[in-house]
Design a protein around this nucleic acid. Structure first.
Lengths: 137, 137
DNA sequence: GGTTGCGCTAACGAAAAGTTAGTGCTTTCC
DNA sequence: GGAAAGCACTAACTTTTCGTTAGCGCAACC
């Protein structure tokens, strides 16, 4: 039935597509979750503007807790999207910036983010319509 | 300190940017979460290929539970990204497809998704490097 | 000398996600 | 013709994740 989930290997024209997020166990799905997750997306977006220290980032990504920012940054660092530069001074100074791969992902993410922001009025209008249609039910 | 979070209104060149996902209370952040959420992104991606019934979608988005697919579709429908066409037959037949706005968002999402898939080898390599560097610690 | 900032981590309660079971009807299989 | 599976969900329960609070040792500011 032409499923998006291919069984193991595709030996035809799709041979260059080695990974498939639509498959449950595909590692690219985990990466996508880091990138598009609640805090991952905002962190990558914020880092697109330059290099920031931990608490600078925390202020830019409004609402993120220290714990979640720490977790998010570690995951993105492990995936090779964020570079962490820790100087062993006291108090410690840690700078975060995007790697080249992280840059490319952040660009595509920001395209999406800006589009969503730019069409938010339409979304709010749709929500009002939906809520009204569901009111008497 | 040039924060991404602007206080209320920007009266300058950014006047066209009415919404800002980096602000905690911005409604566009909620929309972005629906779009980039774990199942939202995959559902929009799957629906980019056409119209599907509930259980067809469920098979395409490998691993999603009925509950989460149902929730995800409702949120996306409310945001005006997915159109739900329910025929009151028995057994019921419900078709889901993207709205024009949903199409545009799915396109940008798929750009990101395909990029992540295409660079997954680099990500896995980075993870190996990271894990090795952390091994003796 | 008390507060604030630095970059985190541990422990705990709250919220979200995942799992299982059940609905009433129809089509398909044997 | 009886059993099983598919349809599109929802409700109840469990597990995982998330957010909140507290604490660390040190240094600069007031």
């Amino acid at each position: 039935m032409d499923p998006l989930v291919r069984p193991e290997s595709a030996s035809d024209a799709d041979a260059d597509l080695a990974y498939n997020v639509f498959a449950r166990a595909c590692p690219s799905r985990t990466t996508l979750e880091h990138v598009t997750g609640r805090w991952g997306a905002l962190t990558l977006g914020a880092l697109h503007d330059g290099t920031f220290r931990f608490n600078e980032l925390r202020r830019r990504v409004d609402g993120v807790s220290e714990k979640m920012l720490s977790q998010t940054l570690h995951a993105l660092e492990r995936d090779g999207l964020v570079h962490r530069d820790a100087q062993p001074t006291n108090p410690p100074r840690v700078d975060y910036r995007l790697t080249p791969l992280g840059e490319q992902i952040a660009e595509r993410l920001l395209t999406l983010i800006h589009f969503v922001e730019g069409n938010q009025d339409d979304v709010l209008a749709a929500q009002r319509r939906y809520d009204e249609s569901q009111a008497g039910r």
